[in-house]
Simulated scan of single mutants.
Amino acid sequence: MRIIAGRYKGTTLYTPTGKETRPTSDRARQTLFDILLHAPWAGNAFIENAIILDAFAGTGALGLEALSRGAQKAYFFEKNMQTRQVLEKNIQLCRANAQSILYKDVLTSTLSNCLCNLVFFDPPYHQQLIPITFEHLQRNQCISKDAFIITETAIDETLLMDQSLTLVNERKVGAAYLKFWKYNNMVE
């Protein structure tokens, strides 16, 4: 697994051993960022000004890819201690320490001054963690009202999102189902 574009392009990321983590494939990340770059509702300027929240960070590939492409800051959340150590190594490998803040668990961490406009939800499949986590982050005012929320689920997984969100794009990539969401008041 490697960073696809930007200042960290070509950097091969560490991955944890075992099956606890299911990193987003290079192909799925490429598709995700291609959609963001070319969509009329996002674009390069959006990515370059983004504040990232990577809710189930794993290796950090999504947040680090965004930082590589110019995002301003990334908040990473990873509950598994072994995987969090790998994530720390990947942040150091990319020399992204100054732009990265690492938390233990997205559902128990107390966040301050964390208003993010590009949010990645890529939890373990089939555990219905996305709606619970979205509600928690929304309640703690961590997601800006102009945010894009990107979810990755299994193709056969049902995802019921908050009614304040509208689906603006979706794509199946291998075993992953990517969905792009925006608050209703931001949809044109």
Rank of each mutant, 00 (worst) to 15 (best):
V173W: 01
P16M: 10
P23D: 05
L36S: 03
E65N: 09
G60D: 09
V168G: 02
A66W: 08
Q127D: 03
A176L: 00
L178Y: 06
T11L: 11
G174C: 01
I35D: 03
L53Q: 01
F33K: 07
Q127H: 08
M161E: 08
L64G: 08
S144K: 11
Q138P: 00
F121G: 06
D34E: 13
P40F: 12
S68M: 06
D105N: 14
Q30I: 01
Q72C: 09
V168S: 02
N185M: 02
I149F: 05
W181I: 12
T158Q: 14
G10H: 08
T110I: 11
V173S: 10
L118W: 01
Y75E: 05
T21E: 11
E48K: 15
A66D: 08
A5Q: 07
Y125D: 09
L37F: 15
R2I: 04
A5P: 03
F46E: 04
I47V: 15
G63W: 05
S164D: 13
P123I: 02
L137P: 04
R139S: 09
K182D: 00
R27F: 14
A50F: 01
G174S: 02
K19N: 14
T110F: 03
N117A: 04
T153L: 02
I51C: 03
C114E: 12
M81T: 15
C116W: 06
I149D: 04
E188C: 00
I52Y: 08
N184H: 11
F180I: 07
L178E: 11
L107N: 15
C142W: 08
V173Q: 12
Q141K: 15
P40C: 02
E88R: 09
K182A: 14
F121C: 11
V86C: 14
A74I: 04
A50T: 02
P16F: 09
I52L: 11
A5F: 06
R29A: 08
I149M: 13
S109F: 03
A176H: 00
D146V: 03
R171D: 04
A96S: 12
L13I: 06
A98M: 06
Q138F: 12
T11M: 13
Q82L: 13
T151S: 15
N185K: 13
L64W: 09
N90D: 09
D26F: 10
C114W: 12
E65V: 07
E188P: 12
N97P: 00
G10T: 09
L64I: 13
Q141E: 15
